[in-house]
Amino acid sequence: MDGMNYMSCIPILVIGLAAANFQAAGKDKPAAQFESLVKEFYEMTHVFTFKAKTDEERNPAIARVGALSVSCLKLAEKYPKDPVAIDALVQVVNQELWFENNTKNLRRIQDGLQEKAIAILLRNHIRSDKLGHACWRISYGFHKDCETFLRTALAKSPHRDVQGAACLRLAQLLITRLNRLDLLKERPEMARRYQGLFGKAYLETLQRQDRTQAVKEVESLFVRAAREFGDVKLPYAGTVGERAKIELHELRNLTVGKMAQEIEGQDQDGKHFKLSDYRGKVVLLYFWSEI
């Protein structure tokens, strides 16, 4: 009986070793390395947002995210021809944006990781058909090179899907930036923060731009996005055309100086009411959702 048990263990042991070797080999693949870095990023943001209660507890998570950006950049530089290189570069941008939005520490920006990642995307990958996602993430950025990337993708990408994404996202970046510049006029105490986010010289250039001309450019980009790239699908839901038309409606009808459009509905007690019921009063209209 003992002999039988010994023999029956051998195949299991061999299969077990083979599986372990296969996994070890898989872990070395760039895609697996990237997956592991992304997983750790989300774990760190979870610690930062939900688990840590003090700055002392948050700081290690912040430091680790910084190290992960460096690792993503190195991965992209080590495997420039691998499809994961673009994902890793976009992830650098994504993580640096997380820094900008979630921490007061602007040291990351000075490290220039985002600029390096975008420079590599422009230099090596501008003709890739995978840049639609990059356009989306980069459109949330502040730096000059984010705008440069979107303008270049729109002008040089041979792929209609990428051009459509670049056109829509460039318009969104420009209008969001105009809104931020407006806010800075109202709240000059934010100058230091914005200088850190945009870069001092770039911010000064933006503050000198002709707002009317800038709005015209935004409008023409949304019109172009709807007209030329209307059927291009967006990540998650909808098309470039649908999104561009919503943005155009807002730009043309829901800006400062326009008449507020009527809103009609029931209040939280089931009573019917209209926005125009409050004509003659100053009204604060506040949009907020839990989801």
């Binding site: 409606h249 807002e250 509905g265 604060l284």
Partner: peptide, 27 residues
């Protein structure tokens, strides 16, 4: 406004989004 989602979508409002409207109904 209860069931505000269609209104938010029509106004393309952020979360949060704020408008201040004067007595003449101008944003």
């Amino acid at each position: 406004f209860a069931k505000g989602r269609p209104i938010r979508e029509k106004w393309n409002a952020g979360n949060p989004g704020y408008y201040i409207i004067d007595p003449q109904g101008v944003i």
